[in-house]
Design a protein around this nucleic acid. Structure first.
Lengths: 332, 332
DNA sequence: CTGAAAGCGCTTACAG
DNA sequence: CTGAAAGCGCTTACAG
């Protein structure tokens, strides 16, 4: 392995000088610079970032803890984090915790020892011990979580407003009997927000009908079962607002298998804009959350904080979008 | 920040001794050990891995370069890599290249400077310059690529055998007119393997009919267009083997939109077992590649190589699975 | 079992 | 503009 010492020796200067030309940190005479550069070129010397880290106390490493990369929204957030990180010279140390508290704590310690400069935690919910530990590390941190209870930096999306807007959209399309299919077992504050967005739309429009079904946390499968149950009784609503795309697709599939046509018999909308929504028939109308941007914006906050900007505090709220596709019928 | 020096001072021993109790590297008297441990406990001292790396020349970092984390199979591979890596104390430095050659080269350099101990490259195809560079770094490396041309370590799946088996499955279900829908524009050696698997099945069963369509690389959309064209002419096959699930779903959707029922009129099978295949109706019969295992097995190879095992050379072939779902009709 | 010292590959005052 | 020296936080022969 060729080191700065070798370069110094071969170009007959001190290692200080070599360091200066590598980092362009101080003036070096053109002649000397050329000589050093030539040796670097010839030897293929590349500075050792570990050594550099030790003295500069900068690792340019960001620790990212996620629950499960297999969820496409998580992957999108990570893409956003990485892209912005790379723009500023930061690298990503990826840790998947699969929602396990002990694993999260282990990784937090690990990231601390690796001298990560910042932490980006992505998860539905964090145990208060984990939050505590993260805080105790004294590193700039950003959270993307559905369950905020703290004075931490975090990114969020106003899911209540999103459901409110979506429900209003259905009402404008002529629907009056609108049900909400909730992921109740897995209830978080976000789930409550969604339900309240739905209820508010019903109330604001003075509709008589409202009904909340509970699909359970199995997502697609549980929703499929619920759909079967609903199909057996007569369906008394013309539109269903679902708490997630997985639920919406599960419901659509079970309706389809039980002779209920979407959207002709019932309109169905989801939340999340997962990729699958474009592949199913009819294509699912849904609420899009800008996950890539969550990563990107969060990372910008994080980097600013690392750079000493203390104004980057508290909540950053990102806009949602209504993706209108073919699972809603206009009835008026 | 509290260092080993502080711990040494507070427990009134030398830093050598502290190092020994931290690493359990040499005998330390129980009494001294207790004292040191107590100070570590009290101060919350955690060793600085950067400093440790510098002297041990071990970073326990694996550089992972992928094309795009948004592809679910890529995320699965990364999960496998990370999981096994963590089991052996390795961390993952994630780099997304979005198939850009210059980006890949940049990240390779970066990973080298960061002293990554091994490289895991995931991509359909790598430019020979990239392969060259990767090799020149002299680090243990594993590739998962569809386009192998070298004496490198790589993981693969016998796609020819997979398509062969799938085609035979259709034949056993009574199909005699079977078409292959290829991703020809994006032709790689894998694409050729797939076609040859298809042709071999046709020949081995002495069928008269064979036809290869070209869907083009736009995947879902291009396949949708092709499906429209096929629908307009009369469909003269009863089953279609598709080169990828995206193509299969595109074809199924355009058939569905043009009044051709899958599987009653035409059976369709895919390749890849992407999540969407379970969400579409009918659920897609397809070939599964064990992506998580690709990451896990590849990482095991990589770690063994890092540990000096030179037998870990060449190809590692992983088994595929036939996922039988509802897009195939039995006609006999 | 323990400690003093050298050294990992760099950066950065400091002095000239 | 340049170099000698100190030091980042550790590990590890070496000597005792």
């Amino acid at each position: 392995m060729i080191t700065i010492k070798d370069v110094a020796r071969l170009s007959e200067v001190s290692i200080s000088t070599v360091s200066r030309v590598i980092n362009d940190s101080k003036p070096v005479s053109p002649e000397v610079r050329r000589r050093v550069l030539k040796v670097i070129e010839e030897t293929g010397y590349k500075p050792n970032d570990v050594a550099r880290s030790l003295v500069t106390r900068r690792s340019y490493l960001i620790g990212v803890i996620v629950n499960n990369l297999a969820q496409s929204y998580v992957a999108d957030i990570v893409r956003g984090i990485e892209e912005i990180g790379k723009m500023y010279g930061y690298d990503i140390l990826l840790c998947s915790s699969y929602s396990n508290k002990e694993t999260q704590e282990k990784y937090l310690q690990l990231l601390d020892r690796k001298q990560a400069e910042g932490l980006f935690l992505v998860g539905n919910r964090f145990d208060s011990d984990v939050l505590e530990l993260a805080k105790s590390l004294g590193k700039p941190s950003v959270f993307f979580t559905r369950d905020v209870n703290d004075s931490m930096n975090y990114i969020s999306i106003d899911s209540s407003a999103a459901i409110y807007e979506m429900t209003n959209y259905l009402i404008n399309e002529g629907h009056e009997n609108i049900a909400f299919i909730s992921d109740f077992e897995n209830r978080t504050s976000v789930e409550n927000d969604k339900i309240s967005g739905y209820m508010k739309a019903i109330e604001d429009n003075e509709l008589d009908y409202s009904k909340v079904f509970v699909a359970g946390s199995g997502k697609h499968n549980k929703a499929y079962e619920l759909g079967k149950t609903i199909s057996k009784d007569s369906v008394d609503f013309t539109a269903a607002v679902c708490s997630s795309d997985e639920i919406a697709i599960g419901i659509m599939n079970s309706f389809s298998d039980n002779g209920i046509n979407v959207p002709n018999d019932v309109s169905v909308v989801g939340y999340g804009n997962i990729r699958e929504g474009r592949f199913v028939r009819p294509e699912l109308t849904t609420i899009g959350e800008p996950y890539y941007d969550v990563g990107a914006v969060g990372m910008r906050m994080l980097i600013k904080t690392i750079k000493g900007d203390r104004t980057q505090k508290g909540l950053m709220e990102l806009p949602f979008t209504i993706e209108k596709r073919n699972s809603v019928k206009t009835i008026k």
